[in-house]
Each structure stands twice: as C-alpha cells, then as structure tokens.
Nucleic acid binder design. Sequence first.
DNA 1: AAGGACTTCAACCGCTTCCTC
DNA 2: CGAGGAAGCGGTTGAAGTCCT
Length: 310
Amino acid sequence: MDVNERNCLQSDDQEEEMGMEELRRGPWTVEEDLTLINYIALHGEGRWNSLARSAGLKRTGKSCRLRWLNYLRPDVRRGNITLEEQLLILELHSRWGNRWSKIAQYLPGRTDNEIKNYWRTRVQKHAKQLQCDVNSKQFKDTMRYLWMPRLVERIQAASGSAASCPAPAASSGVTSPGGSTITTMTGSGNHHFDNKIESSSLGASHGVILENSSTSVSSSSDSFGAQQVSPISELTDYYPIPVNENPDPDYFYTSQGGGYQLDQTLAGPCEGYYNNYGLLDFQPTEHNNNYHYWDGGDASGNLWTVEDIW
DNA sequence: AAGGACTTCAACCGCTTCCTC
DNA sequence: CGAGGAAGCGGTTGAAGTCCT
C-alpha cells in the first residue's frame, strides 16, 4: 500500500463507528501539524476527540494525542539515545519490564514510543543474535554483567576524555568511603541529568544480591572498574527528590541488619531536566559475580564483541 | 546502478484504566 | 455503584531510508 492509499479514509464501518464522514490516517502533513500546534497553543491539550473536531483535523483524538506527545511537543528530544540513556533504559527495563511510559518518565524528552522502539530494534536484536530470549536469565545476566558495566566504562571513558573541560559543579561525583562512584555528565545538548541509580538494587530486584562494597572489591574486577556502593546516607544525598516524597509507590527501600539493601531507589521523575546523571556501581565478587560465569568461556568472547553495537 | 535485505521509527490498533455522571 | 466515554499504554505494522551484494 502506498502512502496515498494509506492516507485514504478509514473503512466504512469505522467511519460509521466514529460518526465522522472522513478520517485521515497515515503520516501527518505539515499543514496538519501546524493546525494541531496552533490549536494547542491557543486552547491547550486534552479532550483529544473534541480537540480534533474543533481544530478541524480529520483525525481521531488518539491520533492527535499521539502526534502531539511523540512528535510535536516542544520538549520532545530527538536524536540518538546517549550512552547514559541506554544504561538507564537497561536498568529500568530490568526493573519494570515493558513499562515504557514509566521508563520514559526518567528520560526527559524521550517518549515511551521511542524507548520502546529502541528496545525492540537494538536490544531485542542482540538477544536474537545471542539466540536467547530477551526475557531469559542468560540474556538478563548478559545485560547486567557485561553490557551495562561496559556502558559504564564507556561513559567513564567519555567523561574522562572530556575531563579537560571544566566540569560544572553539579557534575561532581560522589565518593564513598574507600571507593569511587561513577558520575557522568551527558554530553547531549542542553539536557543534563541528575538521576542516580544505586546498583545494589539491580541485584536486589532480581534476586541477585551484590555484596556490600566493604567486602566485595577485588582486583579481579579491574576490568569493570570496581565501584563501591555508597552508604544510604550518602545515596539519599544524591537524589533531588527524597524517597518519601516520591509519588511512585513502587519506590521503597529496606534496611537489613548492619548493611542495607536498596530495592527501588531511583529518583522520581523530575518535572524539569536532571542536572546530572549517573551512578551505577557494579561489584563483581568472587562467589556471586556472574562476570566469572562468562570469564574465559566461549560465550564471553562472542558477547564482548557485541559491545560495539551499543 | 539496481534491487533485495535489513533497519528504523511514526502511526495505528486493541485493550485497560481512569474519570465523570 | 455502574455505564459510558476519554485517556493511556503496550504491541504491532508498514513506509522510508540505508546497507549490501
């Protein structure tokens, strides 16, 4: 079907159902975009069905809403997904699965549709290459113990190479006792992140408990740049929004004995842009680190070669 | 240069949830 | 409290662009 055909009217029954004579489908024209933008500028968004009618658009309310949210909104961010965003997507998806809109809340300017497309076109493709299901433990472990640390490394490398540039105060990393944390700046446009991820939640949310940093740092983890988990008191300092003010009921943390275990400790979605992004601590340890699982195996080499695609 | 294969992403569809009366 | 409409969400499709042979 060509574009013209695709732009043709909906089927008779649909028209009847909608009670409209003609409804356009397919790609939006510049004129339609302008009509929608101007109408929303004057009247605001919402009530999409009546909006579509009032604006004289021969589109469904759904279509108008989608066009506005995914494309026309002024704060929609376009362009490549940055390394930091990739890392965040992987982390959030490991936590929430295909909750695209929820994930999108943590990536300012990105739409759920964009993230969903990214996941399907990039991540699922890699799962296919590895001949494993995207929901399989193998693939999740690969993500968690190979790709995500690799992304962190690359982010570090990128920020290191940019170290000659004066860093804004907001970008200063947080150093936990006896170790460093990874704090990176996004280099993308004017958008900055101030979103921190505490890595122990990675394990906690998936039944893989990473050891407390005080016991876990080993020389074997050099390749990942062993990072220490920050004490909770410091972690909460990172978050622009206090945990107990987070509107999302999914967020909570638990204390266990002398240590701690964060389970859902992401800063809530901010209404503006984050000032700074990045804190992922990966702590390979001798007995719970799946890094060793891959180490030296045939799969390891293959998987490492996959890194370039990120 | 041509055309087939592959990739990307805007848009649609159907289902679910929320809101209003 | 239930019905109906609106809005939101996730899955899927297919056109357009790019890559490869």
